[in-house]
């Protein structure tokens, strides 16, 4: 590896910016366009998907069967993105997603992965002590609930469909979506109406 790569990162980016623009490999306009597209994805977008799945059984079934096509149907751009798989939590089974090798994350839906998801502590502990790990978020599951850790190692990206909280019968999709947070769709936390 060339020692030039050890140059300060901001300086390296500035140098590449000019070189790649001059060569037509990555122009400022192309970079700005991708950045804008990336910023449209967010946990709020994921929360809307979850709320729709809670209120529309046919949508829920399609989402679980083919996440990519189903969210595309909501207008979320998935072209070029890895396929999306959706993991349904039940009273008996709770999913926790991690990428132990890097930071694979359902970015097309949820946006940039959060800082903690990329950390060594999270990546190491999720597969070995999932209950101890989610306790950092104050999450405690019933003793009767099993945990399924999902190590996202390859070509899919995984999003958790959390359990709909009790006491939300008749709520609108908007009100339900407001209950759903980033961590709920990774499995470190669970939504609550309380």
């Amino acid at each position: 590896m060339s020692t030039l790569v050890e140059t300060d990162a901001e300086t390296l980016l500035a140098a590449l910016r000019g070189l790649l623009a001059a060569k037509g490999l990555a122009t400022p306009a192309e970079i700005a366009e991708r950045l804008a597209i990336t910023e449209k994805a967010s946990p709020a977008q994921g929360a809307r998907i979850v709320a729709k799945a809670w209120t529309d059984p046919a949508f829920r079934a399609r989402l679980l069967a083919d996440g990519t096509a189903t969210v595309e149907g909501l207008g979320i751009p998935m072209r070029g993105a890895p396929p999306l798989g959706v993991l349904e939590n039940t009273p008996d089974l709770h999913h926790l997603v991690v990428c132990t090798l890097c930071s694979c994350y359902p970015r097309a839906v949820l946006g940039y992965p959060p800082f903690w998801y990329k950390s060594a502590g999270y990546r190491a502990r999720a597969v070995r002590d999932p209950r101890g790990l989610i306790a950092e978020w104050g999450t405690k599951l019933p003793d009767t609930t099993r945990i399924r850790v999902v190590d996202s190692t390859a070509d899919y990206r995984w999003m958790v469909l959390p359990l709909r909280p009790a006491g939300t019968d008749g709520w609108s999709e908007d009100a339900l979506a407001a209950l759903v947070h980033e961590g709920d769709m990774v499995g470190v936390s669970v939504p609550s109406a309380g």
């Binding site: 597969v127 070995r128 945990i147 399924r148 850790v149 190590d151 996202s152 190692t153 390859a154 899919y156």
Partner: peptide, 27 residues
């Protein structure tokens, strides 16, 4: 071909809780 492969947590980490499992994509 890529498979979703399920392991008992106790088969991977003996100190983990019985009944928990782990799912991973493997070629």
């Amino acid at each position: 071909a890529l498979y979703h492969v399920l392991f008992d947590e106790t088969a991977l980490f003996p100190d983990s809780r019985q009944g928990d499992d782990l799912l991973v994509e493997l070629f």
